[in-house]
């Protein structure tokens, strides 16, 4: 049985239908990438999974139980942690305080886990007492991921972790995502950076205007002409 099953969900923003029946599944221990152009519905899909949005149709099952419509703060206690798009750290709290906020669902933060997170992101350890607003973009993204890890996720939702970052940083972050996955955390990744995301992911789904148009393993999708044309900008000899 897969960890997350999304079954024909539709999401509306008022009159606009952002998702028109999206179905996919994420198995335990996988990294799954959702690809698509701007406005394809990737972020909407992820927010619906994390409970920030409510689908008007369709079902989401997590570990066999229906979770669509459950508010975000309850899903976190089931182990679904979300790193929202655009980093969203608490700018005037220190790095340490940010990490502790990540463990908000527990009575007190787990010191061992925090040490582990800081091992993953040594940069954060250097800046542990600095206010998060003073960090660089890459460090903030690391902090956002680290904060989500403090909530002991089973399923980690990452929304565009590479947005606006230098290629070197992106590579670092993706390496860390792989490490996190090796620790046993399932990852659902939303990305525009198709080549890196697919190189990392076990499987991928391509979204276009609210529908899934293509699916396959990371390698298959990387080799697919349509993906190459649309997301990797390569000229395809027709």
């Amino acid at each position: 049985m897969s960890l997350l099953e999304v079954d024909g969900i539709e999401v509306r923003y008022g009159a606009i239908k952002a998702l028109k029946g999206v179905s996919f599944e994420v198995n335990e221990g996988e990294i799954v990438a959702l690809l698509g152009a701007n406005g394809a519905g990737k972020t909407t899909t992820q927010k619906t999974v994390s409970g920030m949005l409510r689908p008007s149709l369709g079902e989401i099952r997590y570990d066999g139980k229906r979770i669509d419509g459950t508010p975000a703060h309850e899903l976190i206690s089931l182990g679904i942690c979300h790193v929202p798009e655009g980093r969203h750290v608490f700018p005037r709290m220190t790095v340490n305080e940010n990490l502790e906020m990540g463990a908000f669902r527990f009575k007190r933060p787990d010191d061992k886990l925090q040490a582990h997170v800081l091992d993953l992101f040594p940069r954060l350890r250097e800046r542990i007492k600095q206010q998060a607003g003073t960090l660089s973009g890459g460090e903030q993204q690391m902090l956002a991921i680290g904060r989500a890890l403090m909530g002991k996720p089973r399923l980690l939702l990452l929304d565009e972790p590479s947005m606006g970052l230098a290629p070197l940083i992106v590579k670092q972050i993706f390496d860390i995502v792989r490490e996190i996955n090796n620790d046993g955390v399932t990852v659902l990744l939303v990305e525009q950076n198709a080549s890196q995301a697919l190189a990392l992911a076990n499987r991928g789904y391509v979204l276009e205007t609210g529908e899934i148009v293509l699916t396959g393993t990371g390698r298959e999708l990387l080799a697919d002409d349509r993906v190459r044309a649309a997301y990797l900008g390569e000229e395809i000899a027709s």
Binding site: M52, I76, C81, V89, M101
Partner: peptide
């Protein structure tokens, strides 16, 4: 500080 982040941390 940041409502989205607050929601994402389970508040």
């Amino acid at each position: 500080e940041d409502e989205v982040a607050a929601q994402a941390t389970g508040i």
